[in-house]
Nucleic acid binder design. Structure first.
Lengths: 197, 197
DNA sequence: TGTGTTTTCGAACATACTGTTCGGCAGCGG
DNA sequence: CCGCTGCCGAACAGTATGTTCGAAAACACA
């Protein structure tokens, strides 16, 4: 009975605010976004907002959490469909596919200057995915410092590819971007915790 | 005669503000830092501040520009000392040495959550260094899109190593970190614009 | 359909920071 | 030593945040 009473009003308000956030992300970007903008767009009272979220940052966190849940489920199901041990860094293709299917949103939000909060939350999410992936393949064969570095390295590489992809003019298909990312990240990853050392 | 009259008062004010910035970076971090804090710390009038800088962001930019100038000179002189064609990605060792010699400052500033502006400025600086380095070794053999990706990749990798280094507990010497960085970045870099393709 | 509870509304409020303006004053260069 | 230039500091408008309150609406349950 963790969530026994989802009052319709509560659900309505939360969804109104989450929707308003997504739409306003494209128009104004996250940093320039004010709570008042959200209230106007969502048609929600000021006091109501703060009854649900402590800040606009928590609203964003809630939105990213929802995304992570969807991504995770999508990944899991894809892995089960095509045999047990999925590809190494196999989470990346679903991720690129997701970005591609919401290209409009991510292009305007990620490629804007100073959208650090979004980067922060998304990278935190990716970090968890990568760590999960690494632990599946390298069963504690390396010390934790090396794993920390590896996680940071992979996420940084992935993010560099994403920024390049979304910022570029040529429409590269997600499968190809995924291949580029893997060819970029795997050699360095091997040098850290793969075969050698 | 680009800078003919460095009035003592002007110089004094600028240095007071730049010093105040550095000290307050360690105490409060950049994001939580207010203009008022700078004024109090530097003992400078509000109007005076805005006579010199449009915002606290411009003050930071000014500080990073000074750093870039010093780094660049340091790199150049090191290259001339030990022969002509410096190492590939040879700018990285001076950079790590610089971070190490100001460890206190960078540890507290870079490892703090949400210090995006500093990251932004420093990565912009690093991007220029990397691009310069790449153009010295790959003389327009690759298309510009690949070079853009390579620059982003190298800077992202470098930054991941820096964050890991400064955030870690064990005191790894800068030369070793530099080696780790190069072993991490060079294979991927080769895959992009090196031998193949 | 009625009843007691929960949520929302709207407006007002205290607080904090930004960026600008102005006259008077101090320190500067020559 | 004088004229000029940059500084001070206080005040101001503008904007955003986060909180409070009572009244009104929507709800769950019966």
């Amino acid at each position: 009975m963790l969530e026994p009473k989802p009052d319709r009003r509560v659900q309505r308000t939360r969804e109104l605010l989450l929707d308003a956030l997504v739409h306003l992300l494209m128009e104004r970007g996250y940093e320039k976004l004010t709570v008042q903008n959200l209230l106007d767009r969502a048609g929600v009272g000021r006091a109501t907002f703060y009854a649900h979220f402590q800040s606009k940052d928590e609203l964003l966190a809630s939105s990213i959490a929802r995304l992570q849940f969807e991504l995770s489920a999508q990944w899991r199901s894809a892995a089960k469909t095509q045999g047990e041990p999925a590809e190494r860094l196999g989470f990346s293709l679903p991720f690129f596919l997701h970005l591609d299917s919401h290209r409009r949103i991510y292009h305007t939000t990620i490629c804007r200057d100073g959208e650090w909060t979004i980067e922060l939350h998304m990278q935190r999410m990716l970090r968890e995915l990568v760590r999960e992936d690494l632990q599946r393949f390298e069963r504690a064969r390396s010390n934790s410092a090396a794993i920390d570095l590896a996680v940071g390295y992979v996420v940084a590489t992935l993010w560099a590819v994403v920024e390049w992809w979304l910022g570029g003019s040529k429409p590269v298909p997600p499968e190809e971007v995924n291949q580029i990312f893997q060819r970029l990240a795997l050699p360095g990853l091997d040098a850290l915790i793969g075969s050698g050392r």
